[in-house]
Write a protein that binds this DNA or RNA. Structure first.
Lengths: 346, 346
DNA sequence: TGAAATTGTTAAAACGTTTTAGTAACTTTG
DNA sequence: CAAAGTTACTAAAACGTTTTAACAATTTCA
């Protein structure tokens, strides 16, 4: 019972041609090219038979022969984080258009996990890797790229080396969101960030500093509170410290930070926006709740997805053509500022 | 430069044996069996060489020859929904233990999309499909199962046919959460649900009705407000209707519904839990915010993941053994009630 | 002691594609 | 009208595994 798989051979028999010809037609005519000068009518006949028999190529055989897997690996820090989940879906949709499939993996900001995932994905024969770098994994990323596997960075940069990637203009975003806090009447603004050395976070911090300076504030490092990743319990003292210093505007560097920060603020019985006005980067299910009074930077998830896949396809293409050796492209996307002030703040 | 892929042939040459022997060893000895009576020492030597050369099997070749792809497809309604995202990660982790890889797809509750995904996944040669059924796609699911592809249901049942699957005891969950609302002093409780015919939602509704009856309330259908999927604008009138009728407890059937419901409640300037006490199923980033006063049913994501993958592995095994024809297993998980009442409600 | 069973190993076919190197059959050139 | 070129097609090798059938060499059995 069931799917007696129809192969290229069945089509060849049915259409009374050789398997080679069928292969040519499937690969080239179907895509608009005709570098193998096949007769128009024969090609048509083959395509018709293929459709009638409901042919679908055997991926394993195709991979084996061509050495390509028609799949890419995507390594993010946490696929269940809303920001990455949204991008993941866009990547998937875009890759589907190129007939590529996508595998996902999460590092939890752990460089060993990242190295492990790179190894697993390379061993599976992925044609390329889209990577969200984490602190301490830069060497591993450089190594796999040097070994000839196309790599495209996402969301964050790798220091001291130009690599192809798609990033947000985080500096600009940091300035925008800080200015918005100040414009909303905050006299004393501080920032809560991670201590990890990640390009996106550093750029957000720089943007914050610059906007503060531009607004005539004296700025120094003590205005940015850095929490080590995984030590969220430090948030309590950060919040109470800020409150005691009379801070009335808080900028959080990521959606995970703002989540914990808000929880802390609530559990202390403090109010938003009366005691603290809140601003953050990325989005979060909670922001959708209209009760939230918040300013945040929305990242263009679907642009991230399409651009990063397009870059990857180009990189894979260039590789088989041995073309473009050592050329890097980087795409910088623009942030979008969202201000939410519910009608009934109460 | 780089990964000159080492094959079984290289190992054979290095260890001075035939490729067949290497294959036997890799497939059987490595897994503890020795059905091919290979010499212990030879086997050891081969394994050592393999490790030294950092061998990793070519998946395409292995698939091609064996007819198995060592991959499974997972079709959920929306992979960016927190509930499914959490389960997805657990499925992935569990499948990895069996050396299987996982592909994901989202239906958005659209039966055509589901049929399409089934076709795509089957054509890709998946060894089995884990499916969250959506309304109207039951025929397609039965068909693919009949055609011989192992199918395991997740989260929801398919009516009028026993199929293998992992489900929550939604009836019990509905009773628990309704009782909790009543215990918290709600005198008049109603439910907001979807109009889709989904087993999990129907069971939750049944549980609600039963708990209400048990508590001595008169119940009828008008106490359950059914919103068509994708017509969330209907929420506004549901909320204001409930408010005008003096309802003070609301049970939402899913995390998407409660999200919209809360937004609506806030934007009307109503308060939680003073005006409405809120209860729901599934979780959500927003629930993590401690400001939320809410009662909800937590589903055991990691159990869902492990059980569903284990069932799948068994189904694939049974299939190659032509064993177990027509036998169905279903696993019913237990809900966990969470009550969150923040210390500083406002 | 000779036949039968067991152990350890290998050769070779097969899986479904892609791609190289060819070959007829025509058509164009000089 | 022969040489060169073009068009339309094919045979066959290759990709890296798994698995069947076979074969020595050794051990067990009667």
């Amino acid at each position: 019972m069931g799917t007696e798989k129809v192969t290229i051979k069945d089509i060849a028999a049915e259409a009374k041609v050789s398997v080679s010809l069928v292969s040519f037609v499937m690969n080239n005519i179907a895509n608009g090219r005709n570098i193998y000068r096949v007769n128009k009518d024969t090609a048509q006949r083959i395509l018709e038979v293929a459709k009638r028999l409901n042919y679908s190529p055997n991926n394993a055989a195709r991979s084996l022969r061509s050495g390509k897997s028609y799949s890419i690996g995507v390594i993010v820090s946490d696929i269940s984080n809303k920001f990455f989940a949204d991008i993941a879906r866009c990547i998937e949709d875009r890759a589907y258009k190129y007939n590529y499939t996508v595998f996902f993996g999460s590092t939890d900001e752990n460089p060993e996990k990242l190295s492990h995932l790179i190894e697993v994905f390379v061993n599976k024969g992925m044609d390329g890797l889209i990577i969200v770098p984490c602190d301490g994994a830069y060497e591993a990323i450089r190594r796999v790229e040097k070994s000839g596997v196309p790599v495209v960075l996402l969301d964050r940069d790798v220091p001291e080396q130009d690599m192809t990637g798609v990033l947000l203009n985080n500096r600009k975003a940091g300035m925008q969101v800080t200015s918005a806090l100040l414009d909303n009447g905050c006299k004393k603004v501080e920032m809560v960030s991670y201590s990890m050395r990640l390009s996106n976070i550093r750029d957000r911090e720089d943007g914050f500093m610059e906007a503060m300076r531009n607004a005539g504030h004296n700025v120094d490092d003590s205005m940015i509170h850095k929490i080590p990743y995984g030590e969220m319990d430090k948030m309590a003292s950060v919040i109470s410290g800020a409150y005691s210093r009379g801070v009335n505007g808080l900028l959080f560097a990521t959606n995970t930070l703002v989540q914990t920060g808000l929880r802390e603020i609530c559990s202390k019985g403090l109010r938003v926006p009366e005691d603290f006005r809140i601003a953050a980067f990325d989005t979060n299910d909670a922001f959708e709740l209209d009760m939230m009074d918040i300013i945040y930077i929305q990242q263009p998830a679907s642009q991230f997805g399409t651009e990063v896949v397009d870059l990857m396809m180009k990189a894979i293409d260039d590789k088989v053509k041995k073309d473009n050796e050592g050329l890097q492209t980087r795409i910088i996307l623009n942030p979008r500022l969202v201000e939410k002030h519910p009608r009934h703040p109460r």
